[in-house]
């Protein structure tokens, strides 16, 4: 598996995949896509990077432990639904902040934050599983 070519292109491929996953995540509200699928793509990117360049370098690259990222995602997703508490609304009532930056409509919303949480959870957890298994493979 670890051919030179693969090792050379893997970082670029992974970076591209991560970028794509963010794109999929963000467009999810309007087109097919979303946090899950984005997260899965990003996790695959980590897995490929890990296979190519070793798990250690992946761990260095993402700084935090993937399970920590995953936990943070869950925390964030749960918090996103709690904002409505301050508006006397039920849990997970969506809050929208829409403004225009030179004709482009930018919408910040709690569902988006929630979806990012989902994304992080999936990246973290699935990435962690993949890395752990790959690490096992190496020893």
């Amino acid at each position: 598996m670890r051919t030179i070519i693969f090792r050379t292109i893997a970082p670029y491929l992974s970076a591209l995949m991560v970028l794509f996953s963010v794109f999929v995540l963000l467009r999810g509200h309007n087109e097919p896509g979303g946090g899950f699928i984005g997260g899965l793509i990003a996790a695959s990117a980590l897995a490929i990077y890990g296979i190519a360049c070793g798990v250690a370098s992946v761990r260095r690259a993402i700084v935090f432990h993937p399970m920590g990222v995953s936990g943070f995602g869950l925390f964030m997703a749960a918090l996103a639904g709690m904002l409505s508490f301050f508006k006397d609304q039920a849990f997970m009532t969506s809050q929208w902040l829409i403004f225009h930056v030179s004709d482009v409509e930018v919408a910040l919303s709690t569902p988006l934050v929630f979806d990012i949480g989902v994304y992080l959870v999936v990246v973290g957890a699935i990435g962690s599983i993949a890395l752990a298994l790959e690490e096992r493979e190496a020893d």
Partner: peptide, 28 residues
């Protein structure tokens, strides 16, 4: 109301978002 054209995604993050919260707990 929910500002999303992908109905499935809107269900997942808004209409039935709580299911998703439980589900990501499973993933974690």
């Amino acid at each position: 109301i929910a500002h999303g054209r992908n109905i499935v995604n809107v269900i997942i993050v808004d209409f039935r978002g709580f299911d998703t919260l439980g589900e990501i707990a499973v993933v974690v």
